[in-house]
Nucleic acid binder design. Sequence first.
DNA 1: AAAACGGGGGC
DNA 2: GCCCCAGTTTT
Length: 207
Amino acid sequence: MSKTDRIIKIVEELNEVFEIRVFLDQDPYKVLVRTILSQRTRDENTDQATNNLFAKYKDIYEVVEAPTEDIQELIRPAGFYRVKAGRIQEVSQILIDEYGGEVPDTLDELVKLPGVGRKTANCVLVFAFELPAIPVDTHVHRISNRMGLVNTKNPDDTERELSKIAPKELWIKLNDLMVQFGQNICKPTSPQCETCPVSYLCDYDGS
DNA sequence: AAAACGGGGGC
DNA sequence: GCCCCAGTTTT
């Protein structure tokens, strides 16, 4: 079976087990900020930090004017709060100065922003603009390698390889399903191969 | 390619 | 205390 066919099967199988998560917010700025807050951070903590921030500061203009220490305190649950607060305000200022306060919708423009790498940029493309992209985090990276879909050292290479072999109409689903799969079954340590719905497509022995 | 960065939360 | 967490930046 070709890698493309295996990806199609994987998406099919995982789609039986997991619900595709809905877009929680269509405001591109909030999506961008939330995604920065989500870096190396669990969803619950990300949500809390995001809600804290936007409960007090409504939009990009209020965020840039806010005292940095205040932003830090609001987003503290997300961790890395000093770096993230600085980057959020930096990014916001750039968006105001160079993009009229709007979030750009291309990968090239997004990755130029401080604190925005390919993973975050692709998240914005998907969750803010519903454009096809594959945000590759540690889950997608790990699983793609375990399942022999790619043989790569870093997530950016995984993203480029997956983009070549995965049908474009599956990109968004593929990412979302693989993340849930990684969080619940194909975990970093002690993957649950016994109950894995796609073990028949996988040679990984769990070690 | 590898190391540095940098915090909360769970166990 | 130690390890993981929907990474990014610097060396």
